[in-house]
């Protein structure tokens, strides 16, 4: 069971190849995205952490080695700080910590504005989360259910599953999200984004793919038995391929509706 699943997904990842359309780069709007912003700030934060970590870590290690007891009866010789020293040892570290905090807060704030300001000209997809499924509704009414895991190999040479969230490259995508039962969360791991989905409240998230690729969207707020089965792929494809896919889905939906109606009439 395990190895089967393993191979299946690995093959899917490998099989994902995409031809980039010439001249596509020109279509991609040059706006800051949450994904790149996150990666940049993360690297800056990491540097900050390593500097502080190495500083304190090496100092601590040095003390631990240097001040080993020379003889069992020896006592430490730390002096009592006088008032001015004590105050300095309070205020200077406080100032340094606060400076670091505010530097990080400023970076975080800028990124936050990118993350929460939806750019103009975005495409809105409605997400309805339920136990244990995401339903995506595209602007033209096409509905995708994340638990459909059948693959469709005949579409522009790429394996696309029925439950895949297919998006065009270079278009800001807004997810308008609501839950029909318990709290879920929409976690776009490779896009570095998350937002909870709650019953009775609407939440938003926006992201944009710059290149065709495949990533995962997972439910990241605990929602019961099959919490870890609530996921699907996000497949970013070129605009042309996206249009092909959407047209096909629309056609399928129309066909399904007609068959359904025909069945009812027959009865």
């Amino acid at each position: 069971m395990k190895h089967k699943a393993h191979r299946f997904f690995a093959s899917m990842l490998v099989a994902a190849f995409f031809a980039s359309t010439p001249g596509m780069a020109a279509e991609i709007p040059n706006i800051p995205t949450p994904t790149e912003g996150w990666n940049t700030v993360w690297h800056e934060v990491l540097i900050d952490l390593w500097v502080i970590g190495i500083l304190f870590g090496s100092l601590g290690a040095y003390f631990l080695v240097k001040y080993r007891a020379k003889d069992p009866d020896a006592v430490g010789s730390g002096k009592k700080l006088d008032f001015r020293q004590a105050l300095a040892w309070c205020l200077i570290p406080c100032a340094l910590f606060l400076a670091d905090d505010f530097m990080l807060a400023a970076k975080g704030w800028t990124l936050w504005n990118t993350q929460r300001t939806i750019p103009a000209g975005s495409m809105e997809i409605k997400v309805t989360a339920s136990q244990w499924n995401f339903t995506y509704e595209y602007p033209n009414g096409v509905e995708i259910s994340s638990t459909d895991r059948d693959t469709d190999k005949n579409l522009f040479g790429t394996e696309i599953m029925d439950g895949d969230l297919v998006i065009p490259v270079g278009k800001p995508i807004v997810m308008r999200m609501i839950s029909s039962d318990v709290i879920h969360s929409f976690g776009l791991t490779d896009y570095r984004l998350k937002e909870d989905i709650m019953p009775g409240r609407v939440t938003y998230i926006w992201f944009m793919a710059r290149k065709p690729n495949i990533s995962q969207v997972v439910c990241v707020e605990f929602c019961g038995t099959n919490h870890s089965g609530m996921y699907n792929r996000v497949v970013a494809v070129s605009k042309a391929n996206y249009d092909t896919w959407l047209a096909k889905k629309k056609q399928e939906a129309t066909l399904r509706r007609r068959t359904y109606a025909a069945n009812i009439i027959k009865r």
């Binding site: 809105e124 409605k126 308008r176 609501i178 029909s180 609407v202 938003y204």
Partner: peptide, 8 residues
């Protein structure tokens, strides 16, 4: 409303 809240 569950379907259309948040529509722009």
């Amino acid at each position: 409303e569950k379907k259309f809240l948040g529509a722009k």
